[in-house]
Write a protein that binds this DNA or RNA. Structure first.
Length: 955
RNA sequence: GGGCCGGUCGUCUAGCGGUGAGGACGCCGCGCUUACAACGCGGAGAUCGGCGGUUCGAAUCCGUCCCGGCCCA
């Protein structure tokens, strides 16, 4: 198994196990140099200066020429990361003066390196954190790592094995040293990956689940639960991993269907009479632990057998045939051999039937046959070999009646992949029953919201069926269980610090419990222990409860639900107000990204090759973050193209803004005579902002990214820039030029702010190439719509104009106008309103459609000769056919007619339906009538242009 | 066996009672127009998984089945 799902931050499979190339990011020492002096202002100023000095061959001025024609992320990203670091951008205030925004990073475990799945969650968190920081909220994003006890020990174990060293043979101290060394190396790599991704984590508040303070928090939690009777020790059936030699919780076990062999064994009568009882089993090696054979009490086939005795094959031990209602009559031969120490169901049957002897374990902690109940010949065999050998012996001695292939559910350790051995053993447990209700109630009442909300159902279902949680692990790496046993009276004492003497008898020789705690027992305290709990630390007082937890839904049970329970129990408050679940990443073939399949890019390498911003944007767009989505090479390519587009947009703008242009401190004030495109683009920007804000409020980061992508590329670059070029060149007069400059700068600068949380580096770089106020975009304010008015008329007019432009471009292409770059064109508007709009924007249409001239025709004027016609709701358009050019063709007009006629037919049918007329709301009715009228009108005009006498398609 | 998610142009997706079903990638055609060819403009391409139902009206609501994925037993 390559499953690294052990620490909260490690939700996605596929950590790269191969050596990671040296992180390509060489952090400049800018931060270190300036950190010594005091004062945020001075630090920031220096940071900016240092950053500006960055790219080789660049001047220090901020003239537009500074922006190179190519966008190279590497240097840019390093430079701004250093600047943010030096300016302390990510540093949360010691004493926030407003309601804070807090996020704790799900600590990745030190088992391995960061995966793309981590980067997905991290990007979402960074985006949210940066938005709220820009909104002026005191913002804390707390980083950390998880010691991931079992996972780490398992990894170190196989790492050492590869070098021929057996971890299990090493003394405890030596193991700890080795693990510690492993941890330091991976901790460094994780930190480098965070830095390379541009995450604005508050590194001064870095926490490690194994540091001394955290250890104390863990012991405090244990002791508190112990005293409340919510932690107990008992002999239970646990999931035993014989390879790692430890117990596991139910959640760490994976079930899968696997092929096996079902053996039908004859247990002969003890009295020697012929026959016996037929028993089916897939685990013949456990027969040495049998204490009975059980059948269902109502099973006619076996009725006579109950009460008689049979002999266990191979060993000849006598056991009774008993009746128990738990036996499945349909399965196998309808009878079950009872091996109480190695199967939960058998154990329950055993307990219901007093008088049976309790056998020893016939399979030991290593998964080998053991104990004197096992014949000499089989002792010490691994259970897998034993299964074959026992089956062979059974066959040889004639006990096997028949056998058949059988698919059964097999439980495996998600850590070692070893088949789990159900084992009766003494372990520590947390009683979940009393802890659950507060968490369930919080979700039910909305005190904690889940995004997307559908996960609530899954949450409730699991919470209803909670089993007690086995928290003791028989490994070295982890928090020791803080329980001490008196060497004299045997009293058991739970205490945060080792007691000097036994509280019961005063004896001073106490033995510590040899086990350590499940990693999740420290993880579930993360939201408050990372802030200083159990101390009443200032951070805990200021920043707890946290605002939102972003994590993969695959650890909802492992971690999220348990944090809720711990949060309410230990702090009396919810640990977070919201949980955003992210989806899984898949490749273009729909497979999960995983190390195993080799389809999971290493994020550090990805960032080195394509840039952090491109990687980040590719994770946010176009696939929805909250759903499983595809991450392919093309996705990154796409993101990169978008960033290049924005880059060039700024280059264009910068080249049209003269030296000394004022920063866009307030929205441009438009006048009634302002160009349509200025009114339009401001309105569109406003709507984009509203969409982004709404999306973020609902934790739909992809929707926010999509809105920005569309606006910047299609509205601003494709349309606004093209339409306003003349104005920016001054061809429409100085006042218009000034206004258009102001509008362009305002919209672009504000859009960079909106985009910054998603792709912080490029936007920071670009922001500095534009007139701006302030030291860093990262410290700029999140925009508001204040002073920018929505303008529905402008939006509608622009649609009309662009429909016209598209129609003319189309006609131009249709007549083969590439030969003649500027054919004359005409328009006959449909109605006064269209006429007004089109006439006002005649210049725009002329330029954008690249026709040579555009003349307006009176309603009753004859259509121009030798011109290709098109009919739109706004009017009739004509483009002259070049002499000797393409022959007149009505094909496209006829196709259009066909389509419109079909639409008209459908609309008229609807209008004739009495049900529709009486039940549809009046506005829908009116709309349909208007549509029918307009379609009819347009059809009539099309017919006018179709050659008279030619075959006309019928409506 | 139970639960959840998804099935919409070739691909990824938006839309979640009234639309000529929107976008991106890919494809085809035209264009190097000094921000961008990592680009622009235009075009083709979808009976919205199947079947039933509710409704004046269904991609959208309900039922059922099929396919893919995930989770739990």
């Amino acid at each position: 198994m390559d499953d690294d799902r052990r620490a909260p931050g490690d939700r996605h499979r596929g950590a790269a196990d191969h050596p990671v190339p040296r992180a390509p990011v060489h952090r400049r020492r800018v931060g270190a140099r300036v950190r010594r002096d005091g004062g945020v202002r001075a630090r920031r100023a220096r940071a900016v200066l240092a950053a500006r000095a960055g790219p080789p061959g660049e001047g220090s001025g901020l003239t537009p020429a500074d922006l190179p024609p190519r966008f190279e992320p590497g240097a840019i990203e390093r430079r701004w990361q250093a600047a943010w670091e030096a300016a302390g951008v990510a540093r949360a205030p010691e004493t926030p003066r407003a309601a804070p925004f807090t996020v704790v990073l799900p600590p990745p475990n030190v088992t391995g390196d960061l995966t793309l799945g981590h980067l997905l969650g991290n990007t979402v968190m960074d985006l949210l954190v940066r938005v709220h920081r820009m909104r002026g909220e005191p913002t804390l994003w707390l980083p950390g790592i998880d010691h991931a006890g079992l996972a780490t020990q398992a990894r170190v174990r196989s790492f050492l094995e590869a070098q021929g060293v057996r971890l299990d043979g090493l003394p405890r101290e030596e193991i700890l040293t080795r693990v510690e060394r492993w941890k330091r190396e991976h901790e460094r790599r994780i930190a480098e990956a965070w830095a390379a991704a541009g995450l604005s984590l508050d590194r001064t508040r870095y926490r490690y689940t194994m540091d001394p303070e955290y250890g104390r928090a863990t012991r405090r939690a244990f002791v508190a639960l112990y005293r409340a009777g919510l932690v107990y020790r008992g002999e239970r059936f646990v999931n035993w991993d014989p390879q790692l030699r430890t117990a596991l919780s139910d959640l760490e076990v994976e079930h899968a269907e696997e092929p096996g062999r079902l053996l039908y064994l004859r247990y002969p009568w003890a009295d020697g009479s012929p026959g016996g009882v037929l028993v089916a089993t897939v685990r013949p090696e456990t027969i040495f632990g049998d204490v009975a054979v059980a059948v269902h009490p109502d099973d006619e086939r076996h009725r006579a057998a109950v009460g008689r005795r049979v002999r266990v094959p191979l060993v000849g031990r006598e056991v009774p045939v008993i009746a128990d209602a738990a036996i499945d009559r349909e399965f196998g031969a309808g009878s079950l051999k009872i091996t109480p120490r190695h199967d939960l169901l058998d154990y329950e049957v055993f307990r219901r039937n007093p008088g049976l002897p309790m056998p020893p374990d016939v399979i030991d902690a290593d998964g080998r046959l053991a104990s004197d109940w096992v014949p000499e010949a089989f002792r010490g065999l691994d259970r897998n070999d034993a299964r074959e050998r026992v089956a062979d012996a059974l066959r040889a001695q004639g006990f096997v009646e028949r056998e058949e292939p059988f698919v059964h559910s097999v439980a495996r350790s998600e850590r070692s992949d070893a088949v789990i051995e159900p084992r009766l053993s003494t372990q520590w447990f947390v009683r979940m029953g009393p802890l659950a209700p507060a968490a369930v109630e919080a979700v039910r009442s909305g005190a904690i919201r889940l995004y997307p909300p559908r996960w609530e159902l899954t949450f409730y279902r699991w919470m209803e069926a909670l089993e007690d949680w086995c928290i003791s692990r028989q490994i070295v790496w982890g928090h020791p269980i803080p329980v001490y046993y008196c060497g004299r009276c045997g009293a058991e004492t739970a205490a945060e610090e080792p007691p000097p003497r036994c509280p019961a008898c005063g004896h001073d020789r106490l033995a510590a419990d040899p086990d350590v705690l499940d990693t999740w027992f420290s993880s579930w305290l993360w939201p408050f222990a990372s802030l200083g709990w159990p101390e009443e630390s200032p951070d805990l007082a200021h920043y707890y409860p946290t605002t939102v937890l972003v994590t993969g839904r695959d650890i909802m049970f492992f971690w999220v639900a348990r944090m809720m329970m711990a949060g309410f129990y230990f702090t009396g408050r919810p640990p977070f107000a919201a949980v955003q679940f992210t989806g899984l990443l898949r490749d273009e073939r729909g497979r999960k990204l995983s190390k195993h399949l080799g389809n999971s890019p290493d994020p550090v390498q990805l960032i080195a090759e394509r840039g952090a911003d491109a990687a980040r944007f590719a994770l946010l767009f176009p696939g929805p973050v909250e759903q499983d989505s595809v991450f392919a090479d093309a996705t990154v390519e796409n993101a990169r193209h978008f960033l290049t587009k924005v880059w060039n947009l700024v280059r264009f703008a910068a080249s049209h803004l003269p030296e000394g242009t004022e920063p866009p401190d307030r929205p441009p004030a438009l006048s009634p005579s302002s160009p349509l495109e200025n009114r339009w683009v401001l309105a569109r920007w406003r709507r984009t902002l509203e969409e982004v804000d709404a999306a973020l409020a609902a934790y739909e980061v992809t929707r926010a990214a999509t809105a920005l992508h569309g606006f910047l590329w299609h509205d601003l670059a494709d349309r606004y820039v093209e339409v306003s070029k003349d104005a920016l060149k001054g061809e429409r007069g100085e006042p218009v030029r000034r206004e258009s400059r102001a509008v362009l700068l305002f919209v672009l600068e504000r859009s960079l702010r909106l985009l910054h949380p998603a792709v912080p580096h490029v936007t920071e770089e670009l922001w500095h190439a534009l007139p701006h106020r302030g030291d860093l975009l990262a410290l700029a304010a999140w925009p508001t719509a204040d002073g920018v008015r929505d303008d529905p008329e402008a939006v509608e007019a622009m649609e009309t104009v662009y429909d016209a432009v598209r129609t003319l471009r189309n006609l131009r292409a249709g007549v083969g106008a590439s030969a003649d770059p500027s054919p004359p064109a005409w328009v006959r508007p449909a109605g006064a309103a269209a006429a007004r709009t089109l006439e006002a924007e005649r210049e725009t249409m002329l330029r954008q459609s690249r026709v040579g001239s555009l003349r307006f025709l009176a309603p009753d004027a004859p259509p121009p000769a030798d011109a290709a016609p098109a009919v739109t709701p706004a009017g009739e358009f004509f483009v002259a056919r070049p002499p000797g050019g393409a022959a007149a063709s009505d094909a496209s007009l006829r196709r259009e007619r066909e389509k419109l006629a079909g639409l008209l037919r459908k609309t008229e049918e609807r209008l004739r339906d009495p049900g529709f007329r009486s039940r549809a709301p009046p506005e829908v009715l009116k709309e349909a009538e208007e549509k029918a009228r307009e379609l009819g009108e347009r059809l009539r005009r099309i017919d006018d242009h179709l050659a008279p006498g030619a075959d006309r398609p019928t409506a």
